[in-house]
Design a protein around this nucleic acid. Structure first.
Lengths: 164, 164
DNA sequence: ATTTTTGCAAACCATTTGCAGCTGG
DNA sequence: CCAGCTGCAAATGGTTTGCAAAAAT
């Protein structure tokens, strides 16, 4: 699952590691070495990723963290509000929910790419709809499914050749 | 996963079973008895459901279809454009994509209920955004997460008692 | 008759968990 | 020290698949 045209990260308000430490402290839990490695690695780049990619990525970088700990820490990071889950396929993908502007996604069915975009009307609409239904919204997910510009270009012209 | 305030079904343009038969015929495949049982049962009501609920439901109704066939047929119905997948939790839920108006969802984090709503601005916004990005949209998913009216009422008053 | 489908059971695969030993505060 | 954490390996749970028997055209 690759990204395309990622948005600019926001100016940091304290590091993700720091926010994670605070979260853990409140619950009387510990910021251990594996957790530090994970939170640093994850917030070093702004990609979407899944548990498997994260394990592989870490291995490449020479840091070994067990799969179990990766899963446990991902859960914590979601609870801490640092990561958000993205369920587009059978495996759960994650993206930053901290130091990164709120946005929505377009999902290309050809190349499986996820493209981010920002649009303020969505938020407005979400509030209007929630109010109308007496619903107390805390978040939303808007995913547009279709074919991205790159795949459109790569495909349409080929049609001509198919006919020969 | 329960529904609340389902929308009125559209006037039928030929039965789901008929559309399924056409789909299978085109691919040189067969509308067998188990498949007929499934498509009829599924389109008899307008609930969201997952594979497990479907199997249980059928068993209650005295029709036995193996789990494998249920999964295989669900896949076919999605390919046929009769069902849509809804990935909110670890199990895949399904909803009608035929004979039912297009709509979006509110997902209550307290009771796990899924509430449907219709709003035409969303479709308009989806087109505007897609055009702006050169994306060819074929579908979208808009899910508002939060607390439904029933759970709001059930919770807020209880707070007072918690303080005693 | 030939091709597709079914049901069963086994396989799969992402994720979770029990546990013995390790570690941070 | 001592609660909380890690890694391992085994368990889980939803979903898929191989295969021989059964059904559809």
């Amino acid at each position: 699952m690759a990204d395309s045209a990622p948005l600019e990260p926001l100016v940091e308000q304290g590091s993700a590691e720091e926010k994670f430490r605070e979260f853990l402290e409140i619950r009387g839990e510990k910021l251990t070495e594996p957790r530090r490695v994970l939170v640093r690695h994850i917030f070093d780049s702004h990609k979407h990723f899944d548990a498997d990619e994260l394990v592989a990525d870490l291995r490449t970088a020479g840091r070994r963290v067990s799969r179990a700990t990766v899963y446990r820490t991902l859960r914590l990071l979601v609870e801490a509000g640092l990561l958000r889950e993205l369920r587009l396929t059978n495996r759960t993908a994650y993206e930053h929910d901290f130091g990164y502007p709120s946005h929505d996604h377009m999902h290309c069915t050809e190349c499986n790419r996820v493209i981010e975009f920002r649009n303020d009307e969505i938020r407005r609409l979400r509030e209007a709809i929630s109010t109308e239904h007496g619903f107390r919204a805390s978040a939303h997910r808007f995913v547009i499914t279709g074919v991205c510009p790159a795949c459109s270009r790569a495909r349409s012209p080929r049609r001509r050749l198919d006919l020969i």
